[in-house]
Simulated scan of single mutants.
Amino acid sequence: MQNTEDRVQDSDVLVFRRYADVAVIARDPAFMVKDADWFDEHLPGWRQSTGMRLFGTHMLFHNAASHQRLRRVMSPAFRPARLRALSDVLRTTVEHQLDLLEKRARGDVVDLHALLTLPVTRSTGCALVGVPEEDGPLLYELVQPLLALLDPGTGLAAVTRADRAAATLRPYLDRLVAERRATPRDDLASLVAASLGDDEAAAALALALAGGFDTTVTLLDHAVNGLMTSPARKAVASGDEDAIDAAVNEALRLASPIGLITRIARREVTVGDVRVPEGQEVMAWIRDAHRDAQQFPDPDTFAPERPASRLLSFGSGPHYCLGAQLAKLEASLVLPAVLRRFPRIAPFGSPRPNDRVNVRGWTHFPVVLDP
């Protein structure tokens, strides 16, 4: 449920949780993201951290023209023709993983996260970037400590883990960029290798891997979980596009893969009835905004039939997620496939969450395929 306090002062940060306020902060150009200049002023020494330097310089930490420049480089990888090519990879992986699941004994409890949703998103993310599928498990583990840097109040231990991961990931990405400069292919790595320097290219690929893996697997896990006990499951299993879209949107609302965003006010601005001074840091909780009962009645219930509303899960405005259509494509193929193949699939016990605050998802999703 939505917290009692819609807006609070947390140390030097203004925190907003109400949908109307969070939507303004996400969309209003009066707010900017933290960028390298802001980090230099407020976090001196951050450039000495290999993890922060790798994951703190990608597109999401750039504003205005700099952000648009990086976005233009990456956007061709998400155009319709490229998504159609990725859909072929996706279908093959989905059917392969479902075939493996069908070999399990009737009544077995299986981890759907480990055996379906994560392998599918890893495979698709690897194809998007242009790395071998067999490298997916390693790359997935390496980006996890980087994602923890997005949590509020990140401490020294988290930075140390991110540095350790970046010490392995950065050379891998540098080799990939060098290979694509010598021999380009039809992948994201070739796009960034041709247009960006080493640091920006590595940061762009780290972002693509982290986003492609974790945000999408969270969407898939929660969509399947909601549909298992929803009347909408039959329509989704039949391939009804409207039903699939509604289920995807409801999963994004109920469990937004990105829990919060932070912004800096470029100038004095009013959000709701709160005056936000120029230079003020604000934290806007998307996860709470999506459970604002004034915007979403009965907010804790998975209800795909609820009237459509503008969600904030993929951001808004200039920072709207480039990979949103790819994530929805994955869901549109995975959801009907698993419900068709296992029409009696049912939850078993409670999923196990990861230990992050912002990019929060599950590490274990137990189900019974044929109870």
Rank of each mutant, 00 (worst) to 15 (best):
A182Q: 05
E134W: 07
P231H: 02
T160E: 14
V89E: 10
E95N: 13
A223G: 07
L169R: 10
D6C: 02
A337M: 15
K103C: 06
P184A: 12
S230A: 15
C126W: 04
P353T: 10
D186K: 07
F61M: 14
L149A: 01
L116P: 02
T4N: 05
E134V: 09
L101E: 08
R53K: 05
D292T: 00
R306F: 08
L101Y: 08
R82M: 14
H222L: 02
A327R: 07
E278V: 09
L205E: 10
F365C: 14
R180L: 14
T183V: 14
D135P: 01
V159E: 14
P184F: 11
R185Q: 15
V217Y: 03
Q325V: 04
L176N: 03
L260T: 11
R233H: 05
D292I: 00
D135F: 05
E281H: 08
I261A: 06
L60R: 05
L191S: 06
R233P: 07
A293D: 14
V357G: 03
R340G: 08
D298M: 04
S11P: 01
Q48F: 10
V338G: 00
V357Y: 12
Q48H: 15
F314G: 03
L70S: 03
A202E: 12
D111Y: 15
E41H: 15
V24T: 05
A30I: 02
A189N: 06
D355P: 08
L311R: 03
E278D: 12
A148M: 09
K328D: 15
T301F: 13
I345D: 09
L335N: 01
R310Y: 13
L139N: 01
A65P: 07
D288W: 11
D6N: 10
S313H: 03
N358E: 12
G155N: 09
A193P: 04
R356F: 15
T183R: 15
P76K: 10
F16P: 02
L146S: 00
A202D: 08
R291M: 13
Q295N: 11
R341P: 08
V248Y: 11
T93C: 10
Q9A: 06
D6W: 08
L43R: 07
E278L: 14
L220M: 09
M283C: 14
L173M: 04
T124R: 02
D300M: 15
L139G: 00
F296V: 13
T93W: 05
P318R: 12
R360Y: 10
A194P: 06
D273G: 10
A232H: 12
M32E: 08
